[in-house]
């Protein structure tokens, strides 16, 4: 009698567990599909205009520059971390790019740039772009960009960034929350110095785009 009772109970819990698992999976899939459909609706609005825009998926660590739904350039990021809740899926605008060593445009002196050799000196090129910088978006969102570095100085700098990220930002945001102005922070690590420069070059001030977090296809 006791044996039957135990096996019936075991079977019952197993069934409940399985149902719960499948129900959870379906709920997760629905949530994934809902985010995906919202994302597509917003992207369609961006793609219907003659403009460049970006799509940043934190879940897949991918940043893409697009136009008309077509990927012009894509960067696979080394690492992405964030503080705070993600904003709802909506179009954001890059308001300002700032860097400690921001590139400066060169001024041409009239009458002095007649030879082609001078042109080279006056150019502002990809190699002049910064590798560590901040992108400020509307909706109080900031993205800190820096490259992954494998040098001794790079590790030292990484330690500094680590303490800033875990030691300073939560406290800073706590104070900002007291004044009802908390910010959402994202930090991305690019695979190389060149990729950090290319992102700075590609994301011009005023560019619009979507930031969301969604794992790969469900």
């Amino acid at each position: 009698m006791g044996k039957y009772l135990i096996s019936t109970l075991l079977l019952f819990f197993l069934l409940i567990g399985n149902l719960n698992y499948f129900w959870g999976q379906e709920k997760q899939k629905i949530s994934w599909l809902l985010i995906r459909s919202q994302l597509l609706k917003e992207e369609l609005e961006l793609a219907s205009k003659p403009q460049l825009y970006f799509i940043f998926n934190l879940g897949e660590k991918k940043l893409a520059l697009k136009a008309r739904g077509m990927v012009l350039k894509e960067w696979k990021l080394d690492d992405v971390r964030r503080w705070g809740s993600l904003p709802a899926i909506k179009v954001l605008t890059l308001e300002k790019k700032s860097a400690l060593f921001a590139p400066k445009r060169k001024k041409i002196k009239p009458g002095e740039s007649q030879s082609s050799a001078n042109f080279e000196l006056e150019a502002l090129e990809l190699k002049d772009m910064p590798t560590i910088y901040t992108l400020r978006f509307n909706s109080r969102l900031k993205i800190y960009v820096r490259p992954s570095q494998k040098t001794f100085l790079g590790y030292l700098a990484s330690m500094g960034f680590f303490f800033r990220w875990y030691g300073w930002f939560p406290v800073q945001n706590l104070f900002l929350k007291m004044f009802k102005r908390p910010i959402m922070l994202i930090e991305i690590k690019t695979a190389s110095l060149d990729e950090a420069r290319a992102i700075y070059w590609a994301l011009i001030e005023g560019i619009r785009g979507i930031i969301y977090s969604l794992p790969g296809k469900q």
Partner: peptide
């Protein structure tokens, strides 16, 4: 710092489901 970390720990976006959803 601990309060800040707890408060601002990354949360995933939740989309409200309106009515019956058909997969």
């Amino acid at each position: 710092n601990i309060i800040g970390v707890i408060l601002f720990w990354p949360k995933n976006l939740k989309i409200e489901e309106s009515g019956e959803l058909n997969l």
